[in-house]
């Protein structure tokens, strides 16, 4: 049998699997809604909001990985620095949270550029393990510097009164600070997408990715553009850190905890796809909120308590990743041939 025929059969099998997964998921969601209607709606809303939080954390990583091909483990460190930077601005300097929201991402972006110019620029095109180890080293340096400057005790800062408390949604409520995160994330996502796909600047970057030699031959300054992309990715990490720090406070585990989740989201969304990371963040967010309830609904309907798996919420992102990779190995929106 010809190789192309085998590929077609494999692709057809995966398509069937994908349809099966979608139908099964829809049925399970319907069952959950039927058994726990209020809880389902509350968790759906909460999951979408959480998904946007995850999306903005993963977006900077996706940008740098997708466009520059760098497995940037330091992204978690930059995210953590965003939170601690906000603490510095609000508590130590006594300035407004709104100042931190503007200044800290820029500062973190500048730090990211410094890292790109001094470390990563030498590693482009080399084995990604080298980049991973280099950025992991930078991550450890950031973590220890943070410990030296702010100590190991968890910290927090006060947010403006207007961001405190919750907003009722009819069914349940959402914390105001989280709603701000959702709104900011939406603006950032639209902004980045527009920049990359609706401007000449984005066009030149994508051209440089497809054929760097040719792009430089016609006069495009590719290193400068890549540095700008790194600035954007780092600044978004810093912005996400400010918002997360405002919501939950900060400690030294903040960066490590979220960078792993961000990698999972990028893999699910498809390496190289900004849009994929957004959808993936939403998918993981909703799944984290809904699947434990689904397990309870199944246990209730069938009478089999074992189906209500204790603590299933912690493995949900990895279950989603497993399912997506099984039915679509390149991720939800990974382009055929990209990074292959």
């Amino acid at each position: 049998m010809a190789t192309s025929t085998l590929r077609r059969l494999g692709a057809g099998s995966r398509s069937t699997s994908a349809v099966g997964v979608v139908i099964a998921s829809a049925l399970l969601f319907l069952l959950t809604f039927a058994v726990f209607p209020d809880l389902f709606v509350q968790n759906l809303i909460g999951g979408v909001a959480y998904g946007m939080v995850l999306a903005i954390i993963a977006l900077g990583l996706a940008l740098i990985l997708g466009l520059l091909g760098v497995v940037n483990f330091a992204h978690g460190g930059l995210f953590m620095l965003g939170a601690y930077g906000a603490y510095e601005i609000v508590v130590t300097q006594g300035l407004s949270f709104w100042v931190a929201l503007v200044v800290v991402p820029i500062a973190v972006g500048v730090l990211g550029v410094t890292m790109e110019v001094s470390v990563l620029r030498r590693l482009y095109g080399k084995n990604p393990v080298i980049g991973l180890l280099a950025t992991f080293g930078v991550f450890l340096m950031i973590e220890e510097a943070t410990r030296a400057r702010w100590g190991g005790t968890p910290l927090t800062f006060e947010i403006p009164t207007v961001l405190q408390g919750a907003i009722p949604l009819g069914v349940g409520q959402i914390a105001t600070i989280r709603l701000l995160t959702v709104v900011v994330a939406a603006f950032i996502i639209v902004g980045i997408y527009s920049l990359m796909y609706r401007t000449d600047f984005g066009l030149t970057i994508r051209a440089g990715l497809q054929d760097r030699e040719m792009a430089e031959f016609i006069g495009i300054n590719i290193p400068m553009r890549f540095t700008i992309v790194f600035f954007l990715g780092s600044a978004i990490a810093g912005l996400a850190g400010v918002l997360r720090g405002a919501e939950t406070g900060m400690d030294l585990s903040l960066g490590f905890e979220f960078v792993l989740l961000a990698f999972v989201i990028v893999i699910i969304g498809g390496v190289g796809s900004i849009f994929g990371s957004v959808v993936s963040g939403l998918l993981v967010g909703v799944s984290v909120f809904i699947l434990p309830v689904t397990a309870r609904a199944l246990a209730t309907v069938t009478g089999v308590d074992a189906l209500n798996v204790a603590g299933i919420g912690g493995v949900v992102p990895y279950i989603v990743m497993l399912v997506v990779l099984l039915v679509r190995p390149r991720g939800l929106f990974g382009e055929e041939g990209l990074l292959e």
């Binding site: 991973l132 490590f256 292959e340």
Partner: peptide
Amino acid sequence: MRSFSRREFVKVAGAGTVVASSGLA
């Protein structure tokens, strides 16, 4: 520039997790 495959990336990300877990410990 992007001279590694998606499979390599997944491998590297997994390795990173292991490195990080052991490195932080």
